[in-house]
Amino acid sequence: MQSLRARRDPAPSLLRYRLGRLWLRPSVRRIVMFGPMTALLLGVTFHVATSKTIRAGMAQTVSDLRTAIVGREEFKVSSLAVYGASEDLEAEVVRLAGLTLPMSSLDLDIASLRDRLEMLPSVADAAVRVGSKGVLQITLSQRVPVVIWRMSDGLKLAGADGVVLGEVASRLDRVDLPVIAGMGADAHIPEALELLTMLEPVVSRLRGLQRVGARRWTIVLDREQEIYLPENGAKRALARLMALHASEGLLDKDVAIVDLRDGLRPVLRLGAYAAEVHRPYQLSFEGDGQ
């Protein structure tokens, strides 16, 4: 039998016992666990918030850090490329962007640049992005003039959406474009363009389209021949007239005005000569009445 020693079972001292019991209080435990950390955190926050030097130093550090990041090679924009613009528009775009290259792409406000470009009348749509190798790519879709709009103060060039893109001194500068006139004509340029395509057989005689009373079109041909189109269904009416012209050569005859505003029948006003020629028939018609 081996020698025996009593199993150790040491009693806690009174202090230790009391501390142990204190430690088992949940509130005490919480205070000890989180109290110092919270106090430290609060103290540091207060100190930082109240000390001017620390705050200035922090601001300095932050700005230094920003400068260091902004100045990196990866963010450098060194050149500008404009796509889809004519030469004079490109020059205007470059002037408008007003960039001092090279600069950092972080300092570049691409959204505002895009907005500014789209304010240009000859720019329909703009896309701005920083491409590879530090190239700022500006892709434009340019507005092109489709008509000459004759106004009281001169001839203007207008795009399909009615935006005035510039002026021409003379009709002869842009003989490729048709002429429109009248108040409110700018809002109906697409319709005018469609009507013009239908006027293919008489295009050599076309003087222009006039918007009357800001509600309907009148086609003006040479020999002061005019075609009054209705407010609604102008295309159908014109198609009917062109069919008449194709079969009977109506517009080649001495007709002053073709009035298509009545949908049931075209109304003609004869020219002076034709009226003279037709007068005897008219008289005899009248004489029959007597």
Partner: peptide, 19 residues
């Protein structure tokens, strides 16, 4: 008293609550 303290402390430790 020491014996009682020993037993109570050990039981408290096992239960994790204050008696």
């Amino acid at each position: 008293e020491r014996a009682v303290r020993t037993a109570v402390q050990a039981a408290q430790k096992m239960a994790g609550v204050r008696l």
